[in-house]
């Protein structure tokens, strides 16, 4: 669905995006992670045909953003991180304007607007003025506009930025709904726990370069990093460290005797966790809970990046 081939953007001496290569299969949800100034928005703007690549190309469903930008615009739904709305128009008029701009026939527009308003839970605001909506509602309206022409690829640049926790959760639920429709989504966000929740793959970009990409599992493998396993143990806690130190894949063991927990830094794959747990149980250690650290993506991000900007 999306192929980035040596995609590069230079501004005089500054290289904002440096030979980015990426392949997104149809239905894939790709989380684009990177610090501020890493080149995420520049990459998304190039894909949205708002910036022309200095070098390389990007193909959306086989169509080049450099050679045929007009065709690409029909294939993408773009939601910028900082967008505005028109004053003096109602919600349905706003959507009707974009529907006509996307060349949707007049007779189909009314039902289509109803559908996207229902999906984004804005039906009740159909006749409200756009400027009267809350920030969260405006974000949902922009997403509704993005879905009007049923694009196969969605480019969402920080869709949850500036939202309060409730609006953020609502936005996340909405994105999960979109995942079920089978669309390919490229989403950038600073809130990594949100991306970890529903992205099939992630890409970490720093100083314009993609430093790691793939599923969280694959990135751990590629980079040789460890995953953190948190164990709750009711009996045999004193033996845990001795048993685990003998396992080659275990890098570090931190036991908290008061809490009855143990954090294990582990370089293996997910399947190896089962062997590790079996070994502990065979040794008489009663493991009642085992879970991978929820902030793993954040940890991964911190370890892979060095805080550089383009």
């Amino acid at each position: 669905m999306l192929d980035l081939v040596n995609l590069t953007k230079r501004y005089h001496d500054l290289t904002a995006v440096d030979h980015l290569n990426l392949h997104l299969a149809p239905g894939e949800i790709f989380g684009f992670i990177g610090p501020n100034g890493a080149g995420k928005t520049t990459t998304i703007k190039m894909l949205a045909t708002l910036l022309r690549p200095t070098e390389g190309d990007a193909l959306v469903d086989g169509v080049s953003v450099v050679a045929k930008p007009e065709q690409v615009r029909s294939l993408i739904g773009y939601m910028p991180d900082n967008f505005g709305v028109y004053d003096d128009v109602k919600v349905w008029e706003y959507l009707d304007f974009f529907a006509s701009a996307y060349r949707i026939p007049r007779e189909q527009r009314s039902s289509l607007i109803g559908d996207v308003l229902a999906l984004t839970d804005l039906r009740i605001k159909r006749d409200a003025f756009v400027e009267e909506l809350s920030r969260g509602m405006k974000q949902r309206l922009c997403l509704a506009k993005t879905l009007l022409h049923d694009p196969p690829l969605l480019l969402l640049d920080e869709p949850a930025s500036g939202l309060d926790p409730r609006a953020r959760i609502e936005m996340r639920e909405l994105l999960k709904q979109l995942r079920r429709t089978g669309k390919t989504i490229l989403i950038s966000s600073h809130i990594l726990s949100e991306l970890a929740d529903f992205c099939t793959t992630v890409g970490i970009i720093e100083a314009g370069r993609l430093v790691a990409s793939g599923s969280v599992e694959e990135i751990i493998q590629q980079t040789g990093l460890t995953r953190t396993l948190e164990l709750r143990i009711t009996a045999g806690l004193e033996r845990v460290e001795t048993v685990l130190r003998e396992v080659e894949m275990v890098r570090d063991v931190v036991v908290d005797a008061d809490a009855g927990t143990c954090a294990v830094s582990f370089a293996g794959e997910l399947d190896d966790v089962a062997d590790l747990l079996k070994m502990l149980l065979d040794d008489g250690v009663r493991v009642v809970q085992a879970m991978e650290s929820a902030s793993d993506l954040e940890g991964l991000f911190m370890r892979v990046t060095r805080g550089q900007v383009a």
Binding site: P80, F83, A101
Partner: peptide, 14 residues
């Protein structure tokens, strides 16, 4: 200035 231009320019209007 309002941030609506990018939305307009990504529409397939000539």
């Amino acid at each position: 200035q309002n941030g609506t231009l990018d939305l307009l320019l990504t529409c397939p209007l000539t």
